[in-house]
């Protein structure tokens, strides 16, 4: 399962993410995009500014695999990491999610969630968090 849960989508859509890119030789560049749109539960699209596009275009061209972690208060409330393959078309960065991790510190750090079924992941979330997204 590389499908995002409703809770993941709600936090990611509202606050966007820190998007970590790297050159093929491992030199990183991270940008921050403050909202996102999600389609079919696994395609996350970010609208970049010209400056953001210019900053990461070379990295995406040679190494499209990126990591994302929710921004702002979601960095605390929604401790997830999403990895996947990105395509850059104009100023639109579209990421197909391939891996999902819990990044809550402690014994659950780096727990891989995409290998579980959706029901199990939702149960996991319900046992650890009281919300299903940011406050309205």
């Amino acid at each position: 399962m590389s499908t995002l849960t409703p809770r993941m989508m709600n936090w990611l859509a509202r606050f966007g993410a820190h998007i970590a890119t790297a050159s093929k030789s491992g030199y990183p560049t991270t940008i921050v995009v403050e909202s996102a749109t999600i389609e079919e539960g696994k395609y996350v699209t970010y609208q970049l500014t010209d400056a953001q596009r210019d900053q990461i275009a070379a990295n995406i061209a040679e190494n499209p695999y990126v990591a994302q972690a929710p921004h702002a208060i979601a960095a605390i409330r929604a401790a997830y990491q999403f990895k996947g393959s990105a395509t850059l078309e104009g100023n639109s960065l579209k990421v197909e999610i391939k891996e999902i991790y819990c990044t809550k510190p402690g014994p659950e750090a780096a727990l891989r969630l995409d290998v579980l079924g959706m029901d199990q992941v939702i149960k996991f979330e319900e046992s650890r968090w009281r919300d299903v997204g940011p406050p309205k």
């Binding site: 998007i19 790297a22 030789s25 491992g26 991270t30 695999y65 990126v66 990591a67 994302q68 990491q81």
Partner: peptide, 10 residues
């Protein structure tokens, strides 16, 4: 990683 797989955590 050395071959460019990123990781980002809060």
């Amino acid at each position: 990683s050395a071959d460019g797989v990123s990781n980002v955590v809060g």
